[in-house]
Simulated scan of single mutants.
Amino acid sequence: MGPLFERPEVRASVDEILQAIAAGRIRVVIDRIFPLADAAAAHEYAETAKPLGRIVMKP
């Protein structure tokens, strides 16, 4: 998001969302976790499987 964080309204919104997640008011649903080495598989899954949550790639 780079330069977008320099905009006060964007930064405030992101901070508010992160605080809500930390407080448990928002729950992030993770559909599947892929190793970063399998980035191609993660992208294919995202495009074809219609995931019900976020897809995470871990180093």
Rank of each mutant, 00 (worst) to 15 (best):
R25D: 13
A40W: 01
H43E: 09
L4E: 13
E16I: 04
E9R: 11
A41I: 06
P59R: 02
M57H: 00
R25P: 04
L4P: 07
M57N: 06
P51I: 07
P8F: 13
P51Q: 03
V56A: 00
E16C: 06
I17G: 05
A12H: 11
E16L: 13
E9T: 05
F5V: 03
H43Y: 11
I30E: 04
G2W: 02
I17P: 06
P3M: 10
I17M: 12
R7W: 14
F5S: 08
H43Q: 13
I55Q: 00
E16M: 08
Y45T: 02
V28H: 13
P3N: 07
G24M: 12
E47Q: 15
A12I: 05
L52F: 05
S13F: 09
I55T: 12
L4W: 14
A39R: 06
A49H: 10
R54E: 09
G2C: 09
E44P: 00
R54T: 02
I17S: 01
E44K: 10
L36E: 00
M1W: 04
A22N: 10
V14H: 02
A37N: 11
G53Q: 08
M57L: 13
A22D: 09
R11C: 10
A41E: 14
V10Q: 01
A40P: 03
S13M: 15
I17R: 05
V29A: 11
A39T: 15
I30P: 04
E16H: 13
A39Q: 01
R54F: 00
L18V: 13
